[in-house]
Computed example of a mutant assay.
Amino acid sequence: MDNDYIISTDKSRLDLTVIHQFLSQESYWAKNMPLELVQKAIDNSLCFGIYNNDRQVGFARVITDYTTFAYLSDVFVAKEQRGQGLSKRLVQYIIDYPDLQGLRRWTLVTKDAHTLYEQFGFVLPDDPNLYMQRKLIDSY
């Protein structure tokens, strides 16, 4: 990442409009998510923004207890910024983040980015039968 890009956890820098637009309009996992729910998710997560000359071009958040578990979520890079390795830089930054060291388990859910996350040690569950979910269809 050249000097024009920085990653920050400063929530005051986050551009809620950019994040909400991507999640609610472009993502497959948070389609139609209301603005107030995006804000609540940000408020209750460790957030990472990628900025190009102070303009937000990427985002991710981690839901964690900072001790044993982390769930990586809502990872995106704006379409016009893709192909520069920004998603790799973002995930590496998150994995190396000091407050997230020593965790016992990381999880995430992806439909199409397995090769990205495999580079950072993510694998399919050893025993998928151990995992359960409670999914509410059309919750937005």
Score class of each variant (00 low, 15 high):
Q101F: 08
P98Q: 00
N32Q: 10
Y97F: 10
Q56R: 04
E118S: 03
A60L: 08
Y5L: 11
P125Q: 12
T17K: 09
K111C: 05
I137G: 06
I63Q: 11
Y140K: 14
S24Q: 03
F59A: 06
L136A: 11
L136S: 10
Y93E: 12
Y131N: 12
L116V: 05
L16K: 13
H114L: 12
D10V: 06
I7W: 01
R55P: 00
P98R: 00
S87N: 10
A30H: 06
S139A: 15
C47L: 09
L108T: 03
T107V: 08
G121Q: 07
M33E: 08
E80W: 04
F69A: 14
Y97R: 07
S12D: 11
K79M: 10
I63D: 02
Q21I: 13
N52P: 08
A30M: 02
F76W: 08
V38A: 10
V109F: 09
D4Y: 04
K40Y: 01
G102L: 07
A30R: 04
D126C: 04
L90P: 07
G85M: 08
K135C: 12
A78I: 10
Y5C: 08
I7G: 00
Q133W: 07
M132A: 14
V91I: 14
H114R: 11
D54V: 05
E26Q: 13
Q101N: 13
A70P: 01
R55N: 09
S27F: 02
F59N: 02
V109I: 15
F69C: 09
L86E: 00
T9G: 07
D2W: 01
L46Q: 05
I63F: 05
P128S: 05
V38C: 04
F122R: 03
Q39K: 15
P125D: 07
G58P: 06
